[in-house]
């Protein structure tokens, strides 16, 4: 089993459309995980049929029992995350689950319970098994949920003897991304030829390097700014990153999305281009 993570520091670069396309091209021999749990969109293209739904707990949270609380203020003083209000109510979003308040409460008025923060799904999609999730709105711990669904996906890939496990990661460089790339064999970074795209690529590459994960680069919409595309290409090369594809600006990416299709199913031109890119991903494993 080889694990491939598709990521982009910057949002809106076409990461999910490309992930869906790779999955279609490798249909039957692949398991897919949507780890962009904050803004999961892959299901819109791969139309999974959900077989199992499970609750997910991101961790424990403090809860103050009003009838036992003597309003001594010790918990408020102890909490470094300002999660306890002046009238002794814990804000579940602010609570980091550190348990300091439970330790200092002199009357045992604080419960420390598991908090259901989302659901994850084991499904069958158009390309094969798929693992995805829905984080409760205004919930935290997306990193933990990503780790969770990735572990599920890895097991399913092994059990079903599939060769590839494909992970669609979220934008950024924070906890969700770190959880997404941990354990991956290769990172496919998607960027665009803009100053923001260059800047975000630099940061995300620093991260994959720190985690010692081999990275490949795709420049989408490269003809939007040829000079910038060249700068990004040069930056990639000087950092030992292969540029495995340059895709021109193409409104078909949007059109295919409206039809609920992956780009490779909508346009023959994109199909042949993305097919070459996917073969290069596999060659580099």
């Amino acid at each position: 089993m080889k694990e491939i993570v598709v990521l982009s520091g910057k949002g809106g670069t076409g990461k999910t459309s490309l992930t869906a396309s790779f999955a279609i091209l490798e249909k039957g021999n692949i398991v897919v995980a949507d780890c962009d749990v904050d803004a999961a969109d892959l299901h819109l293209l791969l139309t999974p049929k959900i077989n199992e739904t499970h609750d997910f707990s991101g961790g424990k949270k403090a809860f103050i029992q009003k009838d036992k609380c003597i309003s001594c203020g010790k918990c408020i003083e102890a909490c470094r995350f300002d999660a306890i209000s002046d009238d002794y109510v814990v804000d579940p979003i602010g609570c980091e689950g550190c348990k300091f308040c439970v330790y200092v409460c002199p009357v045992g008025a604080i419960d420390f319970n598991k908090n259901i923060s989302g659901q994850y799904f084991l499904s069958d999609s158009r390309v094969g098994p798929m693992v995805h999730a829905k984080l409760g709105v205004a919930e935290e711990n997306s990193g933990k949920l990503v780790t969770y669904i990735k572990a599920k996906g890895e097991n399913i890939t092994r059990q079903n003897n599939k060769d590839y496990f494909l992970v669609d990661a979220s934008p950024g460089v924070g906890c969700a991304i770190i959880a997404s790339i941990t354990g991956a064999d290769i990172a496919v970074i998607v960027t665009e030829p803009t100053l923001s795209g260059l800047h975000d690529f630099e940061r995300v590459l620093k991260l994959t390097k720190q985690f010692r994960i081999k990275s490949l680069l795709i420049i989408n919409k490269y003809d939007l700014n040829l000079k910038m595309a060249t700068s990004i290409e040069n930056f990639a090369k000087s950092n030992g990153v292969k540029v495995i594809g340059k895709i021109p600006y193409d409104d078909d990416f949007y059109e295919s999305q409206v039809e609920g299709k992956a780009a490779v199913e909508y346009s023959d031109k994109l199909k042949s281009m993305i097919n070459v890119i996917w073969e290069k991903v596999k060659e580099n494993l």
Partner: peptide, 10 residues
């Protein structure tokens, strides 16, 4: 704001 709907956005 950062993108998404989880803690940094809140």
């Amino acid at each position: 704001s950062p993108p998404g709907t989880s803690c940094p956005v809140i």
